[in-house]
Design a protein around this nucleic acid. Structure first.
Lengths: 342, 342
DNA sequence: TTGAAAGCGATACCAG
DNA sequence: CTGGTATCGCTTTCAA
């Protein structure tokens, strides 16, 4: 910047003004400075800028208050990454709201003050009121990303999560190829309100009927992500469909399914594909109770949300390929080792 | 730091000495400073430190000079990430050496000057001479990570890549479950010198014989990562084993395999699992020529190598879970969309 | 509309 | 052994 000032024959302050597009500079001056910048191949030092500006990124994660393992893992990530991120001038806060309650989300969003929070990541249900609250939040100057379940109609800045239709199709393809006889398949979903659950179901059904007509998807059960509820519902289902050859657990509540299967098993002829790698589902995969797990990496989700929120606040570009959350497929062979730090 | 100096009743310079464990401070003074640090809950600002120090991270990637798609993708990542990383005071250089040539790697390593390079990532063959060169490089004060193929005996600082035994097992499990009849399986490997190729083969064979005794792995062919060579060898193999029901392409050179299969296909009864997601293998997966792809993400590899090299240079801890390269499984349903920037 | 100068949090060199 | 001070690259008053 010093060089630019010298070459352009102006002061540092003026260089700063044109660099940051601040008002009050004659266009001739702007030209001079820009020419110097081009000549010198200048690259701005963000770290120094942030230092001088004492910039902080105060980010908030709004998360449904449930005990399900995926949410617990996500919260753990927020906590551990938050601890690391102090070195990068960013703080991660977490706010729990009642699950599947759009009014709670709306209230949380509306209570946000742009003076104290720069960006928010929200796991939301897609209702008109949530949509409008997201719009209001962005209008206040707070960056918003949708987490896990998209809110496209709300014009959120970004979506951080997987393509759930593709995830459903992936589960179906895997199950279709693993199962070696005709038969019936059960789908366990979570809530009708959650867009991610609906999309998985949709993708699963579509691929099954396209490619595996010999497999018949029977009516799904709505487990509300509740292990106990799921555990209770299953005996009836198995009684009604004794020839069940596959189960697609598309939402949370896996421990209930696992308990049932292990209580009544082994079920050698049953192919089970579930979502989300957690301690319980990992153990089930290793034990052979589950055949495959479809996962979205919680560490990646939190890091990605953080990077996108900061990029949005700073109005700088980001690396799309890095931010794309993968649809991970885990068999017991490619399970990552469980791991710690340093 | 100012606060610490004040509270401890010493100067900034002394605080700096204690913080950086520099010599020449009385232990009583050190104690005073440490007490102040503890009291104040001080967290060091790396950005400011780097600014003052004008620290640059000059990193070098030593890559075999081949046209195979995986290496090409890796080089592209190095180039694009290198361009981004100027903002983080780090430069990425690339040096190509003849493939499978340990002397070339040794020479490249020995030519390194700690004055001009801080860290190096190397894709190497594991020979005694390479091992010793890596040790010398580290002794010179240059951080070393092994890329893609591990060099454990060299005491490299880190390995960035997948567990190749597990990758081979994963391929075997997938293939074993996809194939619905007894038959023979062909494995295409790369070079006997490359540890990663050997390990994949080993894992694949082990799981096949453990879990799928009805599938018979016939002698593998060594394709040397060369598409044309592979294309030439295949007719003979198919003539010798007309009942082939699976092919595991465990190294590079997929385009040769794809050409053969598409020239002679369709092969509906043939299950093909290959390594590395590249434009060619992606197309083959989408066309149904390949059934699954095992991948290690090149973007992740380069980012991880960069982070680990910097962490090593700075002697700071890193996040193990973030640096673990996953064994990705791709079916055509969970293929990531091809993507660009911003 | 422009410039001068004081920091941001840390390092490094030179004295004492 | 310890302190003073210039400096890194950029932002931000305050004046002119």
């Amino acid at each position: 910047m010093n060089d630019i000032a010298r070459v352009a024959g102006v002061s540092l302050a003026t260089v700063d003004r044109v660099l940051n597009a601040r008002p009050g500079v004659r266009s001739v001056t702007i030209e001079k400075v820009n020419k110097a910048i081009a000549e010198l191949g200048y690259v701005r030092d963000t770290a120094a800028a942030n230092l001088a500006r004492k910039r902080l990124y105060r980010l908030l994660f709004i998360i449904p208050e449930t005990a399900n393992e995926f949410i617990v893992a996500l919260e753990a990530e927020i906590a551990t990454q938050g601890a690391q991120l102090v070195h990068q001038r960013t703080t991660l806060e977490r706010l729990s709201v009642p699950p599947f309650d759009s009014q709670a989300i709306v209230d949380a969003l509306d209570a946000l003050d742009p003076e104290t929070t720069d960006g928010v990541a929200v796991i939301g249900v897609e209702t008109p009121s949530v949509r409008d609250a997201v719009k209001r939040t962005r209008a206040k100057g707070i960056a918003v990303v949708a987490l896990v379940s998209d809110l496209p109609s709300s014009e959120r800045d970004h979506f951080v999560g997987i393509d759930n239709i593709a995830a459903g199709r992936t589960a179906a393809q895997l199950m279709g190829r693993f199962i070696r006889r005709p038969g019936r398949i059960l789908v366990i979903t979570g809530s009708r309100l959650a867009r991610d659950h609906l999309e998985r179901r949709k993708g699963f059904d579509a691929l099954m009927s396209e490619e595996f007509p010999q497999l018949d998807v029977v009516a799904s059960i709505e487990g509300r992500d509740d292990p106990d509820l799921i555990r209770q519902m299953l005996p009836e289902i198995f009684a009604a469909y004794p020839d069940l050859c596959g189960i697609y657990s598309s939402a949370a509540g896996n421990p209930g399914l696992i308990r049932y299967l292990e209580d009544t098993g082994p079920h050698d002829e049953l192919c089970v594909v579930a979502h989300e790698l957690t301690p319980a589902s990992r153990a089930a995969l290793q034990a052979g109770t589950f055949d495959a797990i479809i996962n979205q990496d919680t560490g990646h989700i939190v890091r990605s949300a953080t990077r996108l929120l900061r990029a949005t606040v700073d109005r700088v570009p980001f690396d799309q390929t890095q931010e794309r959350i993968r649809i991970d497929i885990y068999l017991k062979e490619n399970l990552p080792h469980q791991g710690g730090h340093t």
